[in-house]
């Protein structure tokens, strides 16, 4: 073996460097996000908070909706979406505001980590915890969803979109404390207009129309459809039990709305995210 080295090398001049790739970087950051979540006790609050949504379900009057499903079942299915909503808006806004303040985000950027991996790590964490918590809640609820895959897609899309909403809050706030306060506003607004607190059918028609294009209602409907196997996309009234293919066909507009939201929110995050704590 012959090794020839330059006597006074120009550092790295002849070296090609390949970064690990954004996907591997995202996974690596998700692992760190997990460690940080477990060690940051305040974050656990966002795991407990969504459970509050399920408490009224035990006391509200339950009336038959369709088939052997009651209004309580429908509220339960929609409330599953509240998990990703609270965790997604609450956690990323809080920790990213804190990390911007402590220059952690800026340091990641200057060391060459692309934005997509930095955001991807926290989105993946929220999706992961939301899926786990949703599975737990459904297991306790005692009923296997009629279409578990659609349920999974609903929870996943919801959690991803809500994490991006959370990230979008950080440019609007100065620090982690104000992020915690301010995140309550979109959290409540989306809970109220998403069919999570009460069925959208109770809202006046114009409001209901608008709400259906906000990023929660479509997933709440998908969750109800997945849970019951009934096509509830045209409203609960007159919903019918349908097969898998018809259920997914009915869900397509909702999936489309959510994907569009995710793209738009991701672009907004990319455009407006602030990396520097100094406000010029």
């Amino acid at each position: 073996m012959t090794t020839t080295t330059t006597p006074a090398p120009v550092r790295g001049a002849a070296r090609t460097r390949t970064a690990p790739g954004w996907f591997r970087q995202t996974l690596r950051l998700t692992r760190t996000e997990f460690t940080l979540f477990v060690r940051y006790k305040t974050a656990w609050l966002y795991l407990v908070m969504p459970l509050v949504l399920f408490m009224p379900l035990t006391s509200v009057p339950s009336t038959p909706a369709f088939g052997d499903f009651t209004t309580r079942d429908l509220s339960f299915a929609a409330a599953v979406l509240g998990i990703g909503l609270m965790l997604g808006i609450g956690h990323p806004s809080n920790v990213f505001a804190a990390r911007r303040e402590s220059l952690v985000l800026k340091r990641l950027r200057v060391s060459g980590v692309p934005q997509v991996a930095i955001f991807g790590g926290v989105v993946a964490l929220v999706v992961l915890f939301t899926l786990l918590l949703a599975a737990l809640v459904i297991a306790v609820g005692g009923r296997v969803p009629a279409d578990p895959v659609l349920m999974l897609v609903a929870v996943l899309l919801g959690a991803a979109a809500m994490s991006l909403v959370g990230l979008l809050i950080t440019p609007l706030v100065r620090n982690a404390e104000s992020a915690q306060m301010f995140s309550m506003v979109p959290m409540l607004a989306l809970l109220l207009t998403g069919g999570v607190f009460f069925p959208l059918d109770l809202l006046p028609e114009p409001v209901r129309m608008v709400a259906q294009f906000l990023p929660v209602a479509p997933t709440a409907e998908m969750a109800q459809a997945a849970y019951t196997g009934y096509d509830v996309f045209g409203g609960v009234e007159g919903a019918e039990a349908v097969g898998t293919a018809a259920l997914w066909t009915g869900a397509l507009p909702a999936i489309g709305v959510m994907l569009a939201w995710i793209v738009v929110l991701a672009l907004l995050v990319h455009r407006y995210f602030k990396w520097d704590p100094r406000q010029p």
Binding site: A19, T32, Y40, L103, V104, V110, G112
Partner: peptide, 18 residues
């Protein structure tokens, strides 16, 4: 550029819980 440059920022930028 990003793979080949790095910095010590004026502030710190460490994850305190790690």
């Amino acid at each position: 550029v990003r793979e080949r440059a790095n910095a010590v920022l004026q502030g710190s930028g460490l994850l305190d819980d790690l």
